[in-house]
Nucleic acid binder design. Structure first.
Lengths: 354, 354
DNA sequence: GCGGGTTGGGAAAAGGTTTTCTCAAGTAGA
DNA sequence: TCTACTTGAGAAAACCTTTTCCCAACCCGC
């Protein structure tokens, strides 16, 4: 109690800097000795005034640390430079790269993103959409965890543009998805180039549209290349199913595959582990390709897994840009646009013979 | 060209519903035959008027589908009901549940969340923070991928409150992290209750603070229980390191552990696989516990992995609520608050003997 | 019938910015 | 010297809501 009072820091530096209100345009104008109208025009490069005046105002603004209030601007311009991102895959693996891509594309244009996780809850979805509408977002991007399911929200009669990415679009809307068929073809072609001839396909449940899309493309690609077509094995998206599929493919006496194209990386992981346990060498005896290119899985398999990457970040970018042009008044062609996949080659397929 | 023109849909239903401006309070007031002031008060339950008038205005608003413009409200109230969420872990595993928790806590209070991914780019971070400030967010939550690193942004002298969750807080700020020591203790105690006595610890690089925190707690818990303390094995966060650690622990002639507590689920996965390959049974011969409870990994190990869950969603919720009370003017106690972990029991530890 | 209190509702300012319009002064041409 | 432009800058409306007065009408008791 008796000691010297603690040294006081200068008021500007100390304690709750909160509530010190931001500098307004009015203050800048006053400091520069002009009207707010002139100040506004000076800072925006509008209107007519001497270069000297403009510069003086700008300098004043800079010194005062003036930053225009976007709320006021938005109110006037009827454009908030804000979009909503709706997803039901917050924990999942797909929406993340996608969100990063979206955010990426938009930030460069000064647009911020409201992230909204609606789970599979209709009420929550409605709540979020209304909140976004109230906040006057310029548009909405809807994304999810599978492309053959709707989000639990009705986005069809909003007064703002909506873009769907990696989720089922409403009819007549703009939708972006990965080209799964192309991805499957990429895998088959890669195997063919490496001289593999008996290529099996192990994928997820038939209830997923992508499973059928990829399976069809797989069959078509085999036929085009005059390779023997074997029926795809459809099961679950799990490692366990990969194990089981290997038991079926390599358990019997019939001719064994020398390549397995898997519907996702977890199945591929299961396949590779099961093959190893059977003493079948990857990639020497059998090549394996996964789907999704989930790095954490693909790089942990032994050997590291070659996988089809859906380019989700790019897809997100495209979605962001599409929404932007829609917001800008450009009429975008409705319908579903498919973006190409790419093959990320690691060591699970081996090198070309010779 | 000669055919009948396509049937026209009614104008209200058709084409670019865009740009049809939202209903304003003024219109509601006009329709109800009152002034905007009265209309505002009617809808907000303020002011004095006959119940009949109030009800009539409300009904009119309902019919017209009036929704107040939050931009205008925010401008006036100097409160945007919007917060920024800053992360450098967009692709990662930690920020997602955390973000969901934050978003969860805030949505219930009508607050929306701007998601900003700053990667490790200082410039990008600055950009985002300024954008958020310009948009007049009420506060900021900073989160990251490890608790001993700063985000590449300076949040220390903002005029709005900041809460740090799962990232290193600035001195004097409010920070929330998981109780890693407690989590480690949870694991050791669980092993002890199951009768395991020789408990090893395999973790990530010593350069991570959590590695040391957990290792210290592990040692302390062993000592408290009069169990033999063996030096933790520190390496990488990978499956590969799990394999290698097993080689070291079970390769030599010395006494082998009957339990392994791992620094994350990937290491644990590697440990379990390596044990199986050596013919050591899990959980019969050796129990294994992981950390993070990354379900997709924990449930794919054979047997499924018991793991320490950091309760990140709860942590996010707490962060959201803390920020909310800060924004509301409640002075929150600065400093780091640790939230308890929980053990998610699966089958990798076995049941109690007898 | 009249002062004082209550009741129902409106006018107007405020919030920060942009934009259109207006206006005074200056310049050029006749 | 007068007219016709141009130039530089300000006033004011607009965006939409909230809130603080303010005012008229009514009711009460005397």
């Amino acid at each position: 109690m008796g000691g010297p009072a603690p040294k006081m820091v200068s008021d500007a530096e100390s304690a709750p800097v909160f509530a010190k209100p931001p500098v307004t345009l009015r203050e800048v104008a006053a400091a520069a000795g002009v009207s707010v109208a002139t100040a506004s025009k000076a800072l925006n490069g509008q209107g007519r005034m001497t270069a000297e005046t403009r510069e003086r105002i700008r300098e004043t603004a800079r010194i005062l640390g003036f930053r225009p209030n976007h709320l006021a601007q938005s109110l006037l311009r009827k454009r908030s430079f804000t979009v909503g991102l709706l997803t039901n895959d917050t924990y999942g693996r797909f929406s993340l790269p996608l969100m990063a891509g979206v955010s990426d594309a938009l930030v460069d244009n000064g647009v911020s993103v409201f992230l909204c996780n609606v789970e599979d809850d209709h009420r929550l979805g409605q709540l979020h959409v209304e909140a976004m509408l109230d906040k006057r977002v310029d548009g909405i991007i809807a994304t999810g965890k599978r492309i053959d399911r709707h989000l639990p929200v009705d986005l069809s009669n909003l007064r703002i543009p909506v873009v769907y990415a990696f989720t089922q679009p409403d009819p007549g809307a703009v939708g972006l998805v990965s080209d799964d068929a192309g991805g499957a073809r990429l895998a088959v072609e890669h195997f063919r180039r490496l001289g593999r001839r008996r290529i099996a396909h192990v994928s997820g449940p038939a209830s997923f549209e992508v499973v059928n899309t990829r399976a069809d493309a797989y069959r078509a690609a085999l036929q085009e290349n005059n390779l023997p077509v074997s029926e795809p094995l459809l099961g679950a998206w799990s490692e366990g199913w990969g194990h089981e599929a290997v038991a079926r493919l390599f358990g019997g006496g019939e001719e064994r595959p020398d390549a397995v194209f898997c519907g996702n990386d977890q199945i591929a992981r299961g396949v590779i582990d099961a093959l190893r346990e059977r003493g079948i060498a990857v990639p020497d005896d059998v090549g394996v390709i996964g789907f999704d290119n989930w790095e954490i899985v693909a790089e942990a398999t032994r050997p590291p897994l070659t996988s089809v990457d859906m380019n989700l970040a790019a897809l997100g970018r495209e979605a962001g840009l599409a929404l932007l042009s829609l917001v800008g008044g450009q009429p975008a062609a409705p319908g579903i646009r498919k973006l190409p996949c790419r093959l990320v080659v690691r060591q699970s397929c081996g090198s070309p013979p010779g």
